[in-house]
Design a protein around this nucleic acid. Sequence first.
DNA 1: TATGAATGAGATTTCATTCAT
DNA 2: GATGAATGAAATCTCATTCAT
Lengths: 195, 195, 195, 195
Amino acid sequence: MRNNKPKYNQIIEAAVRVIAENGYHGSQVSKIAKAAGVADGTIYLYFKNKEDVLVSVFEEKMGQFIEKIAESTSQKQNAEEKLQTLIEEHFGQLSADYYLAIVTQLELRQSNYSLRLQINNVLKPYLTVIDNIVREGIEQNHFRSDLNTPLVRQMIFGTLDEIVTNWVMKEQKYDLLSQVPEVHALLIGALSRTD
Amino acid sequence: MRNNKPKYNQIIEAAVRVIAENGYHGSQVSKIAKAAGVADGTIYLYFKNKEDVLVSVFEEKMGQFIEKIAESTSQKQNAEEKLQTLIEEHFGQLSADYYLAIVTQLELRQSNYSLRLQINNVLKPYLTVIDNIVREGIEQNHFRSDLNTPLVRQMIFGTLDEIVTNWVMKEQKYDLLSQVPEVHALLIGALSRTD
Amino acid sequence: MRNNKPKYNQIIEAAVRVIAENGYHGSQVSKIAKAAGVADGTIYLYFKNKEDVLVSVFEEKMGQFIEKIAESTSQKQNAEEKLQTLIEEHFGQLSADYYLAIVTQLELRQSNYSLRLQINNVLKPYLTVIDNIVREGIEQNHFRSDLNTPLVRQMIFGTLDEIVTNWVMKEQKYDLLSQVPEVHALLIGALSRTD
Amino acid sequence: MRNNKPKYNQIIEAAVRVIAENGYHGSQVSKIAKAAGVADGTIYLYFKNKEDVLVSVFEEKMGQFIEKIAESTSQKQNAEEKLQTLIEEHFGQLSADYYLAIVTQLELRQSNYSLRLQINNVLKPYLTVIDNIVREGIEQNHFRSDLNTPLVRQMIFGTLDEIVTNWVMKEQKYDLLSQVPEVHALLIGALSRTD
DNA sequence: TATGAATGAGATTTCATTCAT
DNA sequence: GATGAATGAAATCTCATTCAT
């Protein structure tokens, strides 16, 4: 695998740092190369072009992000707990990585359509995790049986994403993790049976 | 106000069209000028720079969008109905204006940080409308009294925004308005008192 | 026509000068722009890209070159005189324009395949002039009737071209025009009836 | 000599193949190395630099080409026959080696001035062969005594070269060798005594 | 000898903005 | 007010060459 090569990871890590500090449009290849301690041309030994660097940043970082969430949730027994864990991990990981939060919430969204499509692809497994929790909640009779899974998934993802983006744009001045219980309560309220 | 001048509006309308058809990065000043039937230099008689054109597009279009929502909701008596009307108007207006939906959901999000801050400013009155509905629902004892208004507002806006973005990215192949009841039910579920 | 625009001609003339002085591969767009007294970007208002500049140099210069030859030869009555005039003009014009000779004989031949095909196209009318002289000579019974016109044309053009190239590579240290009679005699020897 | 080393020849042969298939500008050192089955760096153990590879290709290939012509013509008794043999060999060898024809007629001509000077040097022995035939013809009283040898040599070489180049550019769609008699007749016509 | 990963200089082209008319 | 020709800064990517192993 290419990520055994140390230079590959050096470049990815440098890219996150440079993008977080200079913004998407201020992140020239030469700046990333310098931050990674390699020559400009070296970037092109590991990546097809600049867009490939950015996609790879997202793939690597979001890949880990999603994997952790998938693993943590899988260890919980019911849908409500899984949802809570998902929110905790989502907020927790982005709280813990200042640069990653800026890059994923603000900077990479400025990318062009082609890059956006690839980013959406990377996100798919996360959306599947959400879908499965919703389905499980319905099967376990904890959630309402008439839920429209895609719509619910859009609500959950849209809610979490908007909350994190607000937090990043407010320069992370408050504690994101402390909002987990309230967010969980809101979402459970939306999903639970009322009878 | 500068929007009494006919060329100002010509340019705004041309910009929406050009951005929707060519994407954010394919929308050069010269292209907008040509579509508006004016010379490149004329743009600079009405706008400070390109960013000002884009902000103005958002201001004008979202200004109308928000105004309509504010007016429609104000005619309803209680928070639940107001929320329903808000969702209807939000989905309805974007359903009705193909170009506007693409521009606001996809293209203008590719803008840089500075433009994004200005766009957020334009959105503030909309967020206030949501806040007021939430507060009213609490006061009317329809919503739970322990709701964290900003958080709830983020959930509502994040949910609606994510749903519309998905719909635009799926090339508007399904009917957005038919989802209003389900979305409303979900949000009401999240907000309502359970006792 | 685009060559009414003064900048267009400024750029063409500058390009000939720059190519002659710096060689094909030493002729960056910025160097041509500077020599023409315009900004780099101005080049692209008049030419699609760098290749278009080079093709146009050849078109304009060879266009005039060929036109003069066509006109001069047309005023002669028989094929032998026409051939003499053609050689005189061919050698004469390139003798008179130091830069043009270097550019057409040495530098533009270093171009890539695509440019070479376009250059060949420009040369076509010249080859036609030669063909017509050959045919006329045959009809007038001055040249042998069994001549293979394309082959003869290749001999004539190949001969003149090789002689000029040698002269340019020897840095034009001898007088090219003084060779006209000998060259003419050789070619007439090849073409004339022997009975 | 360095061409006792097998890798040297591997690289030369690979270079011809790569240049014929990819064109002069598409023939990177790494591509030649790969085709030769050696590492990039190995090229530099056998050649000073890329230009040296190209010059060597020309030297080796044209060396053989010229040697054969010199040998074949030396076995003929008079200038006319020698000229015929020279044309036959010139056309014959290039007809027989598809890649060599493309490389020498089209691709290597795109090289820069310095390489062109070296290529001219390689050609010198061939030009001497031609010169000797011309001088012999004059001495033998077959050719006109007033011939300017360098000029005649330029005519002969220019003619043959132009004919081959045309044939290569027309993608070798017709038989080059069948033109030998006509070409010979033309050149003999130019050189022969007319009394 | 042989390797091949790393280097880094260098050039085309775009496009927001200006300003003389 | 209106024009649009001209500006020129700025960034990606290639590829010949090197050198530690």
